[in-house]
Design a binder for these strands. Structure first.
Lengths: 223, 223
DNA sequence: CAGCTTTCTGGAACGTGTTCTACTTTGCTG
DNA sequence: CAGCAAAGTAGAACACGTTCCAGAAAGCTG
């Protein structure tokens, strides 16, 4: 019986750069809930230290190495505090993934895909992300599986799909229709599965590339 | 450190249709494949009781209700025995899913999809499966997530993909190429994700149907 | 049937995620 | 500054998957 409550924030939102700012009187509400923005600088730092420690641990030994006690210790906080920031291990994983995604988005911005067609661009983006993830296979595996499993709200797939539509198909946000999102979602889903297969050693990089290109060609044709 | 060893069988093989009816003396077929095949009648029954108990428990309360101790108790075996049959909870889940898949395959055989195009047929099959799974949402959710996560060998996606190619595209096994499998795999992946979204209440049945049809049309065009 | 091996059993024990408790520290706010 | 609630701390405790163990039961095999 562990529901995912978020006393501080926890959301994987790309609002990482959220410097502590204002704050309202504590009284205001009897324990409102999730939102409640970050409070002090030290809390921001604590949060950062935690996520950092978690990522570091996970990048060796995967998720099993990322034990809550160890993370707490390494981040220099008490176990209870860790749980105040991240009500479950999954929430922590989600936060780590969020940062990875930020990284990817920035990387894409810096160097947009060069392929001529939308399909080509999409495959390009996805395979670049795959390469990035494969640099830390343990972490990647753990993260992806965790994400799929979690009940914690994770706009992961949607974030990737939207990214694809924007950067590969060159669609401005307004032109992202449900149908298009569905197609991009299918491609994202295929990508995730292929990635998992590769991580499990059941796909070579070449196979995965081919499969993604094949699917992208069909799903992104005419976009 | 828990490796998945299978002392008896454990494979999600489609050999489920074993009615407890007649059971030839253990000898009959030397039960080839996995390590030591199933042995005696009582072992078969034990295995069946376990899977049954597991499925029953999981269909209420999902996977969390399917606790190893409870399963063991309910199946009338000792915990140690349960672990002899299924070296990990995941193996048990895989077995349960295997049975569900058998059910689906039989259902498809009984009443093949009627749509005219391969794409239509594929969507038909997938949505039928979805409806079936949605009858036990807790179970479905738990099973799917577990399957994706598991390291236990799970030809789940491949099984579904192959089924699609055979029944929707009418391809005999020999004509199932890697490229075709990749396309079917993409559709399967999209289906799985949509299913998860629906189970989480983030999709309506209608949305999912549309998305799957959309993806199927493109991925199965010209098959 | 005796002797051996394999399987089962009940139950203890271990590891790790999660929760709880009692206490201290921090950061206000009147 | 005194008071107070929120946030943090150390550490025990709990839950459940998993492992181990010693002994009983079941199956062979000679």
């Amino acid at each position: 019986m562990r529901r995912s409550r978020a006393p501080l924030d926890v959301l994987p939102a790309p609002e990482a750069a959220n410097e502590m700012t204002d704050r309202e009187r504590a009284s205001s509400h009897p324990a409102a809930e999730p939102p409640s923005g970050v409070r002090t600088r030290s809390q921001l730092q604590r949060r950062r230290r935690i996520v950092q420690a978690a990522a570091a641990l996970a990048s060796r030994g995967g998720i099993e190495a990322m034990q809550m006690r160890t993370v707490a210790e390494r981040a220099g906080v008490a176990l209870g505090t860790l749980y105040r920031y991240f009500p479950s291990k999954m929430d922590l994983v989600v936060a780590v993934v969020g940062e990875e995604l930020d990284l990817l988005e920035r990387s894409i911005e810096r160097r947009p895909p060069s392929a001529p067609t939308p399909a080509g661009k999409a495959a390009d983006v996805l395979m670049r992300a795959a390469r990035g993830l494969m640099r830390e296979p343990e972490l990647a595996d753990a993260l992806i599986r965790s994400l799929i499993i979690t009940e914690v709200s994770t706009p992961f797939a949607e974030r990737v799909s939207t990214l694809l539509l924007r950067v590969a198909a060159g669609l401005p946000r307004e032109e992202i229709t449900e149908d298009r999102l569905a197609l991009a979602g299918a491609l994202t889903a295929a990508w995730v599965m292929e990635l998992l297969e590769m991580l499990r050693g059941r796909r070579t990089y070449e196979q995965m590339t081919r499969h993604i290109e094949l699917a992208a060609e069909r799903l992104f044709a005419g976009l």
